[in-house]
């Protein structure tokens, strides 16, 4: 299996801080790839590099074998990269339906398959279970629901790769489970998913392959079992656990 999306030796420096150093990540079609790591490890920064919101200091990003490092964010979206955000980036003054519709209509600019944006929108609403609240301004929806709107919006552009940044934060247990089963469904449809997540049972249950970031460096890659057994990973996580307990 060859990777559909790949970062090679990506480095991002903010002043003196190496947010990401020489991170190489591979995302393969038809499976969920995990990207985990303690707070501030550089996961979101990696997402920003992949989607073009953050220019890397060095390193390259490849999509379907093409170098997209210098492409505009919107061009990457048109190639088939979609994402959600850790801190909500919904269109708060549009309704849930309109949020998704914007993405579906935008897809018209590059997808000539003659689909009906309104229909796509209905499908997506049904898929994530938002049909009931579709007419509400997203600004008035609770965070968990708004997160689903973001997910549906990302899906509406019919991406090849979907990047999810902590999709379970703001969701309760039940909703998290639903999210996990949704993810499985997308992947079975051939989507490639890169998942950043703090909920370990969620990660271990959904990901087939995991990259572990710590202080911007990939310290381990492998299947969930391999990663869990890795001593370095345990150390990294133990370190944060103690911090969390203290706070």
């Amino acid at each position: 299996m060859s990777a559909i999306l790949e970062t090679r030796d990506v480095v991002v420096r903010f002043g003196v801080l190496n947010a990401v150093s020489h991170a190489s990540i591979e995302v393969v079609e038809g499976r969920v790839t995990g990207l985990i790591g303690p707070n501030g490890a550089g996961k979101t920064t990696c997402f920003n590099v992949i989607t073009g919101l953050q220019e890397p200091t060095s390193g390259k990003v490849f999509f379907e074998g093409k170098d997209i490092t210098n492409k505009n964010p919107y061009k990457r979206a048109r190639m088939g990269i979609a994402r959600t955000f850790q801190k909500l980036e919904v269109f708060g003054s549009l309704s849930a339906r309109e949020n998704i519709l914007v993405a579906a209509e935008q897809r018209k600019t590059w997808d000539r398959s003659g689909f009906d944006p309104n229909k796509v929108c209905d499908e997506m609403l049904a898929k994530v279970g938002l049909t009931d609240v579709s007419e509400f301004m997203v600004g008035t929806l609770p965070t968990g629901t708004a997160r689903l709107v973001e997910l549906a919006r990302a899906l509406a552009s019919n991406p090849r790769v979907l990047l999810l940044d902590e999709p379970s934060s703001g969701l309760n247990e039940e909703e998290t489970e639903e999210m996990a089963s949704l993810l499985r469904k997308f992947v079975d449809d051939g989507l490639a998913v890169l998942l950043v997540e703090h909920d370990m049972s969620f990660v271990m249950g959904t990901c087939e392959y995991i990259h572990v970031l710590d202080f911007g460096t990939i310290i381990a890659t492998g299947t969930p079992a391999e990663v869990q057994a890795n001593a370095q990973v345990q150390a990294a996580y133990l370190g944060t656990e103690t911090v969390e307990e203290a706070s």
Binding site: L53, F91, E98, L101, R107, S157
Partner: peptide
């Protein structure tokens, strides 16, 4: 769709770009 796109761009330029909007 025009107004929708403008409002989306105003609410979140980053999210608009990542769904393919040429700002």
């Amino acid at each position: 769709r025009w107004a929708r796109r403008w409002i989306a761009m105003s609410d979140s330029p980053a999210a608009s770009a990542t769904i393919g909007v040429n700002l």
